[in-house]
Simulated scan of single mutants.
Amino acid sequence: MNGTDIDPPDTPADTSDAADRERRYSAPALEKGLDILEFLSECRDPLSLQQIGDGVGRTKGEIFRMVSVLAQRGYIERLEGDDRFRVTDRLFRLGMNRPVNRSLIEIALPFMNAFAETTGYSCHLAVMSGTQIVVVARVESTSHIGFTVRIGYRQPLILTGSGHCLMAFMSARRRHGLYDELRRDDPWIDLDALDRTLDAIRAAGHVARPSGITEAVVDLSCPVTDRREGGAVAALTCPYLRTRQVPKGPDEILASLDEAARRISENFSLD
């Protein structure tokens, strides 16, 4: 048999070459900075240098210069009169500068304003970020009393009406890919029950459920879709709280919200 006709098996040298290539493309300083940003972004309270080091598995000396540079560049900030740090919204603002996000917000705001003026209720636009929602635009209530959330507000997908809306109206492939991430966050999550809930939402065409965050508030949410993406790219949500000043029922608000979401979808798909 002519040995030149058969590819030889991998040799230890081949494995060594692959490992060398992987090492060649590593960037320890960048990885250290990203570790710090990711860790701080998950922490509710500001942290000291020692706490940050413990959180990323490094000493204070190893992270001191990196923390200083991140603070100088505005990605984290030191509390005034304190030695603790917290992440800023600089990365969020960079993400919002992406053309697709700017386009979505610019298209959505006129319809969101029209919804608020017509109904007297506030609304916000949320997109998916990992296993969370993040609010990228909002319009406040035109009445003296209202309930709003700030831009940049984040919560787990499974706790919010916006999150349920985004999950329900994404493609089946994307949804089940997301389930793997949700299971990593919470190994005990009942994905079968979640799947049934999302199927029911998709059949209804909207979300109407008690808020998973605030008592007495009902999350009303409708999908903003893009045919190029094959599903929801955002959720238009109204935190509904019945008031005597604006005594409109949830069905009436949902009808207006659905119309606004549909108009945003149509214009975004044409953009």
Rank of each mutant, 00 (worst) to 15 (best):
E117A: 07
T119R: 00
T119F: 04
G120M: 08
Y121R: 05
Y121G: 03
S122N: 04
C123Y: 02
C123S: 08
H124N: 09
H124C: 09
A126M: 15
M128R: 15
Q132W: 06
Q132G: 06
Q132F: 11
I133D: 12
V134R: 09
V134L: 09
V135P: 15
V136W: 07
A137Y: 04
R138Y: 06
V139W: 02
E140Y: 07
T142Y: 05
S143R: 07
I145V: 15
I145L: 15
T148R: 10
T148C: 12
V149W: 10
V149E: 09
R150C: 13
R150I: 10
I151H: 15
Y153G: 10
R154T: 12
R154Y: 10
R154K: 13
Q155Y: 12
P156Q: 09
L157N: 09
L157V: 10
L159S: 00
L159F: 00
L159D: 00
T160M: 00
S162G: 09
S162C: 10
G163E: 03
G163P: 13
H164V: 00
H164L: 07
H164K: 11
L166H: 11
M170E: 14
S171E: 09
S171N: 02
A172M: 14
A172C: 13
R173N: 12
R174D: 07
R174M: 04
R174H: 05
R174F: 01
R175G: 01
H176W: 08
G177H: 05
L178I: 10
L178H: 12
Y179W: 04
Y179L: 14
D180A: 03
D180Q: 02
D180V: 11
E181Y: 08
L182I: 08
R184T: 06
R184F: 05
D185G: 06
D185L: 07
D186F: 08
P187T: 12
I189T: 11
I189L: 13
D190R: 14
D192T: 13
D192P: 02
A193F: 04
A193R: 11
L194G: 03
L194T: 01
L194A: 01
L194V: 12
D195G: 02
R196G: 02
R196L: 12
R196Y: 01
L198D: 08
L198M: 08
L198Y: 11
A200F: 04
A200C: 03
I201Q: 01
H206E: 11
V207F: 01
V207N: 05
A208D: 05
R209K: 03
P210W: 00
S211E: 02
I213M: 01
E215L: 05
E215I: 02
E215C: 02
A216T: 06
A216L: 12
V217G: 03
V218Y: 02
V218R: 09
V218F: 07
